[in-house]
């Protein structure tokens, strides 16, 4: 069993002005594993991702990425290594290819067309989409392009924020397979936010349940079938009802 930690949080809090979004969170994500982050809207899950990607810094506490404090890393290196794909799937104006090229251009490099086509195929999109304008893509296609774009940096840790929320059942299944494939074949630690608890049980090794900015319960994903915490029990019951 691999007990190395990809990310550790020690008493991490984050406040935006008077609003406390993350409250004294302590916990860790195991290296090489898939962890689901579940909880109601407003629980602070996306903010936790933004903290781990270094887009924002905690107001209190420490974040340790692969055994080193987060502030030791150059921000650009950290963000390439801890990839983040948000639910909003923000695209830059232009073609799908332009979006896939973006991480390489930012690093002063280029992304060959065949490599971009391979990335599209890896996320289950047709390579013919490469020259399509992003304005003509569906929500699901944008989500997949967003994941492919994050993979261009070959991150060791991947943070995926509700990436299947706007996908149909078949696409969702494709992405679930993709997550397992990336995790297994490339040994990438994956942490993903999902509202689908069945999905969390099936795909992930571990699960974190967050509510109101706090980590309520964490452990193997089987905890969702028999939670110890009363709040988690109610949450699971509500979701499964």
């Amino acid at each position: 069993m691999n007990n190395e930690q990809a990310i550790e949080l020690k008493n991490v809090s984050y406040a935006d002005g008077p609003l406390k979004i993350i409250k004294n969170v302590t916990g860790s994500f195991r290296k090489g594993k898939i962890t689901s982050l579940v909880g109601p809207s407003g629980a602070g899950k996306t903010t936790l991702f933004r903290l781990c990607n270094g887009i924002i810094s905690p107001t209190h506490g420490r974040i340790i990425i692969q055994a080193k404090p987060i502030q030791v890393y150059e921000p650009t290196d950290l963000r390439r290594n801890v990839g983040l794909a948000l639910q909003s799937a923000t695209m830059i104006a232009g073609t799908v290819y332009k979006n896939l090229q973006l991480p390489r251009i930012l690093a002063g490099d280029a992304l060959p067309e065949d490599e971009a086509a391979d990335l599209l195929a890896a996320v289950g999109l047709d390579k013919d989409l490469l020259m399509r304008h992003v304005g003509d893509l569906s929500g699901g296609q944008k989500q997949k392009v967003s994941i492919a774009r994050t993979l261009v940096n070959r991150p060791e840790i991947l943070l995926l924020d509700e990436i299947t929320s706007s996908l149909d059942r078949i696409s969702t299944h494709d992405i679930e397979n993709l997550i397992e494939k990336i995790n297994r074949e490339y040994n990438v630690t994956i942490i993903w936010i999902t509202h689908n608890l069945n999905q969390a049980i099936q795909i992930s090794d571990d699960t974190w349940v967050m509510m109101n900015g706090q980590l309520i319960e964490s452990g193997p994903s089987s905890l969702l079938t028999n939670p110890k915490n009363v709040q988690v029990k109610q949450f699971v019951k509500g979701d499964f009802a």
Binding site: N53, I55, R79, R80, L86, T90, I92, L102, L106
Partner: peptide
């Protein structure tokens, strides 16, 4: 959103 996207992908503030 675009600014934060570029930062999150490893871009510099100038980029």
């Amino acid at each position: 959103d675009e600014t934060e996207l570029i930062l999150s992908l490893g871009g510099t503030p100038k980029q």
